[in-house]
């Protein structure tokens, strides 16, 4: 069992290395991607910065606390796209029948899909997100204990899993839509925008959507609420790892169910 997972991890690393080698052929493009995606995400920062020039807090959340929520979105998105950008390839893989290649190899197709691309634009997100996170944490007076640090790590990993699972699950819709221009995964992705700010500012409909339907709130808001001991939401933060497991199992189930419908079109 363990040997199997180690083998998968090693293979994953090899696939990613292959992607990197391929990518190095387009070095300028790579730099532009990293720079531009970092730049576009700085805009949100400007928004928050301008607002907090005028008001001390929003719904009881100070600037640095909101920045943690914001940075969580970017760090997790960055890591998730750096490592698992391949989900976005599913549309092409399925509609052009390229998934065939993955299915005739003795390796999990999910592993092969996830590692079919490397999201260099994630590097920009990771760098900026981490910088904000470090700044924010140093500005917030918090009592860090070892259990809390461990929990913070668990929350971060869970958040990455949740995000990546949503990506895999929403992209699996391609098995049903039979439509090369399907925009469903992008729609789901853009809902993540709500998770950049404290979810407590929204009405119940939006809160329900980002908590239950597409649990983006567990990527940023609930973990932050837990760490900062905010209102009732801190208890929700404890659920994050459970939600992560639920999402991962859900995504794999949806994928496998969809795979049975795969028609290997596009000859």
């Amino acid at each position: 069992m363990i040997a199997k997972w180690v083998k998968m991890l090693l293979l994953y690393v090899r696939f990613m290395k292959a992607n990197l080698i391929a990518l190095l052929e387009y070095r300028l493009d790579m730099m532009i991607m990293i720079f531009s995606s970092a730049l576009i995400h700085l805009l949100g920062l400007v928004f928050l910065w301008v607002i907090y020039q005028r008001v001390p807090d929003i719904n009881g959340w100070g600037l640095w606390e909101v920045l943690v929520v914001y940075a969580m979105v970017y760090v997790t998105e960055g890591i998730s796209s750096f490592l698992f950008e391949g989900s976005w390839m599913m549309n092409t893989l399925v509609n052009k029948g390229l998934l065939d290649n993955f299915l005739i190899r003795p390796v999990s197709p999910i592993l092969q899909i996830l590692s079919s691309r490397i999201g260099v634009n994630g590097i920009g997100n990771i760098l900026i997100g981490t910088a904000i996170l470090i700044q924010a944490v140093s500005h917030i007076s918090m009592h860090w204990t070892i259990p809390k640090i461990i929990m913070a790590v668990v929350l971060l990993v869970s958040a990455i899993i949740i995000r990546s699972s949503i990506k895999l699950a929403s992209n699996s819709s391609v098995f049903w839509t039979q439509n090369p221009g399907s925009s469903f995964p992008f729609m789901i992705h853009s809902i993540g925008e709500f998770a950049k700010y404290p979810v407590s500012i929204y009405n119940t409909v939006i809160q329900g959507i980002v908590t239950v339907v597409v649990p983006f709130a567990f990527v940023s808001f609930y973990p932050a609420a837990y760490l900062f001991d905010k209102e009732v939401f801190r208890y929700w933060g404890l659920l994050t790892p459970v939600v992560a497991i639920y999402c991962a199992i859900g995504a794999v189930t949806i994928f496998n169910y969809g795979l049975k419908r795969y028609e290997s079109a596009g000859n």
């Binding site: 607002i51 008001v55 853009s190 925008e193 009405n203």
Partner: peptide, 27 residues
């Protein structure tokens, strides 16, 4: 013909404006 492409980019803008709406509302 590519209406779904338009819909996503519009919906992304919609989500953005909604999130800003609520943050301003709180303020």
């Amino acid at each position: 013909a590519y209406r779904s492409t338009f819909l996503i980019s519009l919906l992304a803008g919609f989500v953005l404006v909604m999130s800003q709406f609520y943050i301003w509302k709180a303020i």
